[in-house]
Design a protein around this nucleic acid. Structure first.
Lengths: 222, 222
DNA sequence: TAATGAAGAAAAATCGATTGTTTGGTCTAG
DNA sequence: CTAGACCAAACAATCGATTTTTCTTCATTA
């Protein structure tokens, strides 16, 4: 058979980009921290060039701050910024959901049901969080996917990354979590019924509640 | 005295990034073209590393397409994409203008008048286009600046880059240009009068007309 | 004692060269 | 004559070393 040269066929840049993106969203770096490039180089066992390329991309996406001649730093976490991100999510995801319900076809309905089911069945045990997060992101992506605007989807994805960075920092809130999980199912129902107005209202509420949870991460000292 | 080592204090990466961004927006590269990195290296007299970092940033901003293991290419220009960009501009800039009129203070009014005046006085002679474009971008940026959302401003700036790429490809349309220029002044008036509804409607019309102009660039064989 | 400036150390930016992958052409077997 | 495998040239990705810049510390002077 022959040993495959690479686990996944991608460049070192792309791989380290994905890894760092995850680690940044997961809060493995402390907010405001200065990035020591040579330290990362050893920590992730990667060359300088692909690392620098990844850092540049992350900065362009807003997950890092690039200071001319002074390297990179992890963005600080401010309540005002979370407010901004949440408000933008409400506006853009509401807009996208409305269009998706208008434009989505039967295939979309199937995929939406599948994504919702995967999310529902996913375990939230501590060691399975990554998996749950993946299904959660997929669900929200599928929900708005057929909105017809590649740029809208791009912006929403960017906001999700930013929002998740705050949410994952926050302490768990099991009772709110249950409500949020239930809302995922309700969103599917409203989408299938093509009830635009109600769906948008529910999405607004969903994001607002998530925001309340995430807010605890900024307010609490941790 | 001693020769200053650098005109401006910035890195080679940042300088080549700005240059390439301008050149991409100005259509100095043909749409769909494959980027020959070593050719750029010589053309701009720059090292590989800063060049690659700039290309990575541009790809993250959507001004280049990055294909795994196959370098970069200039995005193709499709009518459907221009439609998307224009529609998003209408939505986001409308939203931003509304908020700016709500939140803008006296200082904003002054800056807005100044920006509008600079734009009005700017020459559109062929060799002064760059200057006019600069003032034009500044004006639109100032108009929505106090909207209170850093992310909204970021998205709008990104859309402007994309839109301008199409607009600059289009043939000149002097009679429409006159209308568009007049609208800049009217936008200022409505903003100072805090007439949100009319301002938003005018902004919609302004973008729609610009879109009609830009559309000629995609339709015409040029 | 505080402020200023210079030297040294640390870190980022950049370069030149090497390694690995893709592509397009050519040759051979069916 | 066609399909598939192989080879070589071109190009992208990556590495290690060098240069440049910034930050820190310490001595000097007002």
């Amino acid at each position: 058979m022959g040993i495959p040269k690479r686990e996944v066929s991608s460049t070192a840049s792309s791989r380290i980009y994905d890894t760092l993106r995850q680690d940044l969203i997961n809060g493995r770096f402390t907010a405001g921290e200065k990035i020591a490039i040579s330290a990362l180089k050893e920590r992730y066992e990667i060359g300088l060039s692909p690392l620098r390329e990844a850092l540049n991309r992350l900065a362009a996406h807003g997950l890092l701050i690039q200071e001319n001649q002074r390297g990179f730093r992890v963005p600080s976490m401010e309540r005002s910024e979370l407010d901004d991100i949440a408000e933008m999510r409400r506006e853009l995801e509401g807009m996208a959901l409305e269009r998706a319900i208008r434009l989505g076809d039967a295939e979309w309905e199937s995929e939406l049901l599948a994504a919702a089911h995967r999310l529902k069945r996913a375990d939230m045990a501590p060691d399975k969080v990554e998996e749950w997060e993946h299904f959660h992101a997929c669900f929200h992506r599928t929900l708005v996917a057929p909105c017809g605007s590649a740029w809208l989807l791009r912006f929403i994805a960017q906001l999700h990354d930013q929002f998740d960075r705050y949410r994952r920092m926050a302490p768990e809130a099991p009772e709110v979590r249950r409500v949020l999980d239930a809302q995922h199912g309700e969103l599917v129902e409203l989408a299938l019924e093509r009830d635009i107005k109600s769906a948008r209202a529910l999405m607004d509420d969903h994001i607002q509640r998530s925001y309340q949870v995430a807010l605890q991460g900024v307010l609490s000292p941790a």
